[in-house]
Simulated assay, not measured.
Amino acid sequence: MTYHLVEYLQISEFPENQYCIVLRWIEKNRILPVWIDAADAFELLQHEAGVPTRRPRMVNVLIDLAAATAGGFKEVHIDSYFAGDYIASLVTNNGDELECRPSDAMGVAYLLNLPIMASEDVLSHASVFISEADLETWLGLYLTTDPVESHLEESASGDAAADADFSKLMESMGVSEADLLGSDDNPPKDSKE
């Protein structure tokens, strides 16, 4: 299974006590929303805020247990997605994988600053493109544009991510831009001839 690095951006709150972990597929600049319940969101937000606890949380116990038995954790995987539910795993330094809920995996990843990897299948099925303007408006996220992308030509449709996806689709079918537009040596023939 192929995995890609995703970036944790934030936990967003929506009406009716709905919470979402917002991850970004860096390579494609797409958003992977992972919906969690209010109690898990509250706990993760407390981790982020550095709120001390009187007693260890389950995530702390899990981290201590892994350190004692498996040499600690190496990374987090988001392995599968079906009908709105994700399955994650914590990968130990000795190569074992422990299946867990994504909210628990995110807590460990946050506390240990672990990389978060999502399977290509999950990203293909559950990630979405959201424009930078919509990210700012709806989620309060201000992402800086990749310096490499800022030098690219403007997109034909106004949606660079959609254009890139379309180009890949066409290439996978063996069609190039030159095939569609014709080359200078062989301009497209006029249909009236």
Rank of each mutant, 00 (worst) to 15 (best):
residue 19 Y to R: 03
residue 19 Y to P: 03
residue 26 I to W: 08
residue 28 K to M: 12
residue 28 K to I: 03
residue 29 N to E: 15
residue 32 L to E: 02
residue 34 V to C: 11
residue 35 W to T: 07
residue 35 W to Y: 10
residue 35 W to I: 09
residue 39 A to N: 13
residue 42 F to E: 09
residue 44 L to D: 07
residue 44 L to N: 10
residue 45 L to A: 07
residue 45 L to M: 12
residue 46 Q to Y: 00
residue 46 Q to G: 00
residue 52 P to Y: 01
residue 52 P to L: 02
residue 55 R to S: 07
residue 56 P to R: 07
residue 57 R to C: 11
residue 58 M to Y: 12
residue 59 V to I: 14
residue 62 L to V: 13
residue 63 I to L: 11
residue 63 I to G: 04
residue 64 D to L: 00
residue 65 L to T: 14
residue 68 A to Y: 13
residue 68 A to N: 14
residue 68 A to G: 12
residue 69 T to H: 13
residue 69 T to N: 12
residue 69 T to A: 05
residue 70 A to K: 01
residue 71 G to I: 06
residue 71 G to H: 11
residue 73 F to Y: 14
residue 75 E to M: 09
residue 77 H to E: 00
residue 78 I to C: 05
residue 78 I to S: 04
residue 80 S to K: 05
residue 80 S to Y: 02
residue 81 Y to D: 11
residue 82 F to E: 14
residue 83 A to C: 05
residue 83 A to G: 09
residue 89 S to W: 06
residue 90 L to F: 06
residue 93 N to M: 14
residue 93 N to Q: 12
residue 98 L to Y: 12
residue 98 L to C: 00
residue 99 E to P: 11
residue 99 E to V: 02
residue 99 E to L: 11
residue 100 C to F: 06
residue 100 C to Y: 09
residue 101 R to G: 04
residue 101 R to M: 04
residue 101 R to A: 04
residue 102 P to I: 02
residue 105 A to G: 04
residue 106 M to E: 10
residue 106 M to P: 08
residue 107 G to W: 06
residue 107 G to Q: 06
residue 108 V to M: 04
residue 110 Y to L: 08
residue 111 L to M: 11
residue 112 L to I: 01
residue 113 N to D: 09
residue 114 L to C: 03
residue 114 L to K: 11
residue 115 P to N: 13
residue 116 I to Q: 13
residue 116 I to P: 12
residue 117 M to F: 06
residue 117 M to W: 03
residue 118 A to N: 03
residue 122 V to L: 01
residue 124 S to D: 15
residue 125 H to F: 04
residue 125 H to W: 00
residue 127 S to N: 01
residue 129 F to Q: 07
residue 130 I to E: 09
residue 131 S to R: 10
residue 134 D to P: 08
residue 136 E to G: 10
residue 137 T to C: 00
residue 139 L to M: 10
residue 139 L to F: 14
residue 140 G to A: 02
residue 140 G to F: 06
residue 140 G to E: 03
residue 140 G to W: 07
residue 142 Y to T: 15
residue 143 L to E: 10
residue 143 L to M: 12
residue 144 T to Y: 10
